[in-house]
Lab assay of single mutants.
Amino acid sequence: MAAGGDHGSPDSYRSPLASRYASPEMCFVFSDRYKFRTWRQLWLWLAEAEQTLGLPITDEQIQEMKSNLENIDFKMAAEEEKRLRHDVMAHVHTFGHCCPKAAGIIHLGATSCYVGDNTDLIILRNALDLLLPKLARVISRLADFAKERASLPTLGFTHFQPAQLTTVGKRCCLWIQDLCMDLQNLKRVRDDLRFRGVKGTTGTQASFLQLFEGDDHKVEQLDKMVTEKAGFKRAFIITGQTYTRKVDIEVLSVLASLGASVHKICTDIRLLANLKEMEEPFEKQQIGSSAMPYKRNPMRSERCCSLARHLMTLVMDPLQTASVQWFERTLDDSANRRICLAEAFLTADTILNTLQNISEGLVVYPKVIERRIRQELPFMATENIIMAMVKAGGSRQDCHEKIRVLSQQAASVVKQEGGDNDLIERIQVDAYFSPIHSQLDHLLDPSSFTGRASQQVQRFLEEEVYPLLKPYESVMKVKAELCL
């Protein structure tokens, strides 16, 4: 049975990233139509530049190519590739079939990587351009969430054990800070992308030097003109047959890092959902379990974690691919890159769409948070109580021993009897502590235990987050809708 299948058929496997999760716009960027249309555009740009620099290419040939950029006979191309065992030459023939007058000058002087690699770089750039505003929107939604809850005390956790208090907004800023680093890295790697350009079979530009009869300047002009037509500021000066596969490492490393950030955020949300302090959106008709109707599973956060793990592992592909590119190139890269580049971007696209949807509907339960604080705060307040007693004339050592005994009794009630923490009640009825009984409410005010959390939130948002989001103001209103 021949390899390949009808990918629109229910009898043929289709990647869930495309069929179930990723956005239509990201799927289109990695589609065959987008790819092969870009090949034709690159052939047109090459012909236009070659004509401008004096090669015998007519206006009629150029116009014929322009008129057929979208006229792609995919069936013919597939048949040609089956016959020739070469995808680029299959599309040269297919393009030439609908451009008979231009057929002889299509791909003039070029090698397969002229269309293959340059198209990949265009796709990487455009895919990054799709991700950047999506990530900015996630940051914006979380920034709104953090600002609104900047002063809401909550129990902090280290080692997932109760620690000092923080605020809900401050905790959210930990998430935002990681995503801001990801946004900066995505922008950097996007701006650092260079075009492969017009380089020939081993990167020496020998074929173009021959076409222009040894004119170095025209060869350099050709490279520059096509690079500018493709919208790049610069091209690699040095290439082998391909652009260095280190570029793929750079791009997928940034995406993998984004995956790590999203995994951490969504894990926190899942843990908070278990504590009943916070939940992701839950639709009115949504079913959490087929057997347990009360369940409210954090399905979206779980999906993000599941896909983020996949995204983090994909960076190993370009690392290994770059390491086995012998001399000017081997074909070890080809099949692998067809999979890992598309999957990385479709996965990143999915987790950003999902995280935006989550961040637009996060639900906080202040009463649950308050109750958990009441359970733990008495123990945390013991040092403040000791200091207040010393100020009232008591002995630190005597007070410490009193607190120690009462704390152990209260802990026994919590752990052995399943009761509430009654340390404060014990202190309130103990005559030894009568000098500070009137101060206990103040000493137990949760806001006095959150330090500068709310001020940190305000400063972080104003100095770091809002300036970073400013270039994306025009796209901030787009909502994230999930079908599944």
Score class of each variant (00 low, 15 high):
residue 4 G to Y: 11
residue 7 H to V: 07
residue 8 G to A: 12
residue 9 S to P: 11
residue 11 D to P: 02
residue 12 S to T: 13
residue 14 R to G: 00
residue 16 P to A: 01
residue 17 L to V: 09
residue 17 L to M: 13
residue 17 L to W: 14
residue 20 R to W: 13
residue 22 A to K: 12
residue 23 S to G: 15
residue 24 P to A: 04
residue 24 P to D: 07
residue 26 M to H: 09
residue 29 V to M: 15
residue 31 S to I: 14
residue 32 D to V: 09
residue 33 R to V: 11
residue 34 Y to G: 11
residue 35 K to D: 01
residue 35 K to N: 11
residue 37 R to A: 15
residue 37 R to D: 15
residue 37 R to N: 13
residue 40 R to C: 02
residue 41 Q to A: 06
residue 42 L to H: 01
residue 42 L to A: 03
residue 45 W to T: 08
residue 46 L to M: 10
residue 47 A to T: 07
residue 47 A to E: 12
residue 48 E to W: 12
residue 48 E to V: 06
residue 49 A to S: 09
residue 49 A to F: 00
residue 50 E to P: 12
residue 51 Q to G: 06
residue 51 Q to Y: 05
residue 52 T to N: 01
residue 56 P to H: 12
residue 56 P to A: 09
residue 57 I to P: 08
residue 58 T to W: 12
residue 58 T to C: 04
residue 58 T to Q: 10
residue 60 E to S: 09
residue 61 Q to D: 02
residue 61 Q to S: 04
residue 64 E to G: 08
residue 64 E to T: 12
residue 66 K to D: 01
residue 73 D to Q: 03
residue 75 K to M: 00
residue 76 M to C: 12
residue 77 A to C: 00
residue 80 E to D: 11
residue 81 E to A: 00
residue 83 R to P: 08
residue 88 V to S: 14
residue 89 M to H: 04
residue 90 A to S: 15
residue 90 A to W: 12
residue 91 H to C: 07
residue 91 H to L: 09
residue 92 V to W: 04
residue 96 G to V: 05
residue 97 H to W: 05
residue 98 C to G: 07
residue 98 C to A: 03
residue 100 P to V: 08
residue 101 K to G: 04
residue 103 A to T: 07
residue 104 G to A: 09
residue 105 I to P: 15
residue 110 A to P: 03
residue 110 A to K: 03
residue 112 S to Q: 03
residue 113 C to V: 09
residue 113 C to Q: 15
residue 114 Y to R: 02
residue 122 I to L: 03
residue 124 L to S: 05
residue 125 R to T: 13
residue 129 D to Q: 05
residue 129 D to P: 15
residue 129 D to N: 09
residue 130 L to F: 13
residue 131 L to P: 07
residue 134 K to F: 08
residue 140 S to L: 09
residue 140 S to T: 04
residue 140 S to G: 14
residue 141 R to W: 10
residue 142 L to E: 15
residue 143 A to R: 07
residue 147 K to Q: 02
residue 148 E to L: 02
residue 150 A to Y: 15
residue 152 L to I: 03
residue 156 G to K: 06
residue 157 F to T: 04
residue 157 F to D: 01
residue 162 P to R: 03
residue 163 A to D: 03
residue 164 Q to T: 01
residue 165 L to R: 04
residue 168 V to Q: 01
residue 169 G to K: 08
residue 170 K to Q: 11
residue 171 R to A: 00
residue 176 I to D: 08
residue 177 Q to M: 05
residue 177 Q to W: 08
residue 178 D to K: 04
residue 180 C to F: 12
residue 181 M to A: 04
residue 181 M to P: 00
residue 182 D to A: 01
residue 184 Q to K: 04
residue 184 Q to C: 07
residue 185 N to F: 05
residue 185 N to D: 09
residue 185 N to C: 12
residue 186 L to C: 04
residue 186 L to P: 05
residue 188 R to L: 03
residue 190 R to M: 10
residue 190 R to Y: 06
residue 190 R to I: 10
residue 197 G to H: 02
residue 197 G to P: 14
residue 198 V to Y: 15
residue 198 V to I: 12
residue 198 V to S: 02
residue 200 G to R: 08
residue 201 T to V: 02
residue 202 T to F: 07
residue 202 T to C: 10
residue 208 F to P: 13
residue 213 E to D: 00
residue 214 G to N: 02
residue 214 G to A: 03
residue 215 D to M: 15
residue 215 D to Y: 12
residue 217 H to E: 02
residue 217 H to C: 12
residue 219 V to F: 15
residue 221 Q to K: 13
residue 225 M to I: 12
residue 229 K to I: 06
residue 231 G to E: 14
residue 234 R to K: 01
residue 235 A to L: 11
residue 239 T to E: 00
residue 240 G to D: 02
residue 241 Q to M: 03
residue 243 Y to K: 15
residue 244 T to A: 13
residue 245 R to S: 10
residue 248 D to K: 15
residue 249 I to Q: 12
residue 250 E to M: 07
residue 253 S to C: 03
residue 253 S to Y: 08
residue 258 L to D: 07
residue 259 G to W: 13
residue 259 G to E: 11
residue 267 T to G: 07
residue 267 T to S: 12
residue 267 T to R: 06
residue 268 D to Y: 02
residue 268 D to N: 13
residue 269 I to G: 01
residue 272 L to S: 15
residue 273 A to S: 07
residue 274 N to W: 11
residue 276 K to Q: 00
residue 277 E to I: 00
residue 279 E to W: 14
residue 280 E to Y: 00
residue 282 F to A: 14
residue 284 K to V: 04
residue 284 K to W: 13
residue 286 Q to V: 04
residue 287 I to G: 08
residue 290 S to K: 09
residue 290 S to N: 08
residue 292 M to G: 10
residue 293 P to H: 03
residue 293 P to W: 03
residue 294 Y to M: 12
residue 295 K to W: 14
residue 298 P to V: 06
residue 299 M to C: 01
residue 301 S to M: 15
residue 303 R to T: 00
residue 304 C to K: 05
residue 307 L to Q: 09
residue 312 M to D: 15
residue 312 M to N: 08
residue 313 T to H: 13
residue 314 L to D: 06
residue 315 V to G: 08
residue 316 M to L: 07
residue 316 M to S: 05
residue 318 P to L: 01
residue 319 L to K: 03
residue 320 Q to L: 04
residue 322 A to C: 02
residue 322 A to W: 10
residue 323 S to W: 08
residue 325 Q to I: 09
residue 326 W to Q: 05
residue 326 W to F: 12
residue 331 L to E: 06
residue 332 D to G: 12
residue 333 D to T: 00
residue 333 D to C: 07
residue 333 D to K: 04
residue 342 A to R: 11
residue 343 E to P: 03
residue 347 T to L: 12
residue 349 D to I: 04
residue 350 T to N: 07
residue 350 T to P: 03
residue 351 I to K: 03
residue 352 L to G: 08
residue 353 N to I: 09
residue 357 N to W: 13
residue 357 N to I: 01
residue 359 S to T: 09
residue 361 G to Y: 00
residue 362 L to C: 14
residue 364 V to C: 03
residue 367 K to P: 09
residue 368 V to M: 05
residue 369 I to R: 09
residue 370 E to R: 12
residue 370 E to A: 01
residue 379 F to R: 11
residue 381 A to F: 15
residue 382 T to W: 14
residue 382 T to D: 00
residue 385 I to T: 15
residue 386 I to C: 15
residue 387 M to H: 13
residue 387 M to P: 13
residue 388 A to C: 11
residue 395 S to F: 02
residue 398 D to N: 10
residue 399 C to M: 08
residue 400 H to K: 11
residue 400 H to V: 01
residue 402 K to T: 15
residue 403 I to Q: 06
residue 405 V to K: 13
residue 406 L to A: 04
residue 407 S to V: 12
residue 407 S to H: 11
residue 409 Q to S: 05
residue 410 A to T: 08
residue 411 A to W: 11
residue 412 S to M: 06
residue 417 E to K: 10
residue 419 G to E: 04
residue 423 L to V: 04
residue 423 L to C: 14
residue 424 I to V: 08
residue 424 I to Y: 09
residue 425 E to G: 11
residue 427 I to M: 12
residue 433 F to Y: 12
residue 436 I to H: 09
residue 437 H to F: 05
residue 442 H to P: 10
residue 442 H to F: 14
residue 445 D to L: 05
residue 446 P to Q: 00
residue 448 S to K: 15
residue 450 T to M: 15
residue 453 A to Y: 05
residue 457 V to N: 14
residue 457 V to A: 05
residue 459 R to S: 10
residue 462 E to A: 15
residue 467 P to W: 00
residue 467 P to A: 04
residue 469 L to V: 12
residue 474 S to W: 15
residue 474 S to R: 13
residue 474 S to Q: 06
residue 475 V to Y: 00
residue 479 K to G: 11
residue 479 K to W: 10
residue 481 E to W: 09
residue 483 C to V: 11
residue 483 C to A: 14
residue 483 C to P: 14
